[in-house]
């Protein structure tokens, strides 16, 4: 795929990519922006290559997911080292401090409920309900079997509904 064509296609996917980057970074906008930029950098430099095995969206989401995991691990290590050296309590980058204040209550409740789920459950629900993907596509991005993705989906959906229901009652 030519660079111009790739740029155009990625431009069209940008909103979706942004949403996915946010989900992969615990909804921290600053980290998500860094991750998305790094993912684009990997694509431009050829370190991540699209070989046509899946759809472009699936491939880009896979690159973003891997980049986010690497970035979060790097930040975690850095924070741990900084903690041990200076004993300063750094804010958790996976939680925006201003999140609850600036978001609507409904959205905040959904985020809280999502955060109570396991990583795999969160990912599959995000991909299916937010990005309108099938469980098969979600499985390809998450690098798990379809059966496993389906299990995470079912359990995650039940847990999310229970959590949202109990919060609504409270």
């Amino acid at each position: 795929m030519e660079q111009c064509e790739l740029e155009r296609e990625l431009g069209q996917l940008h909103s979706e990519s942004w949403g996915w980057a946010l989900a992969c970074c615990g909804r921290d906008r600053e980290v998500a922006e860094d991750v998305l930029q790094t993912a684009y950098l990997r694509i431009i430099s050829g370190r991540a290559r699209f070989n046509g095995d899946s759809s472009l969206k699936t491939w880009v989401f896979g690159v973003i997911r891997l980049t986010a995991r690497g970035e979060l691990r790097r930040r975690w290590l850095w924070r741990r080292r900084a903690d041990s050296e200076t004993a300063i309590d750094f804010a958790d980058p996976t939680r925006g401090a201003d999140l609850v204040l600036e978001e609507s209550d409904r959205r905040a409740r959904l985020i809280r409920a999502l955060n109570s789920l396991s990583r795999r459950q969160k990912e599959v629900l995000q991909l299916v309900f937010y990005h309108d993907m099938t469980i098969e596509e979600a499985a390809a991005i998450m690098k798990v079997s379809i059966g496993s993705a389906r299990t995470h989906y079912e359990r995650g959906k039940k847990a999310l509904a229970r959590k949202l229901g109990s919060e609504a009652e409270a």
């Binding site: 922006e33 609507s104 959205r107 309900f129 937010y130």
Partner: peptide
Amino acid sequence: RFSALRNQDRRHEPQFSELW
């Protein structure tokens, strides 16, 4: 609910050209 979340996220979306 997820759609509302998506709409909210898009309000803070960085420009593609800027990141690229």
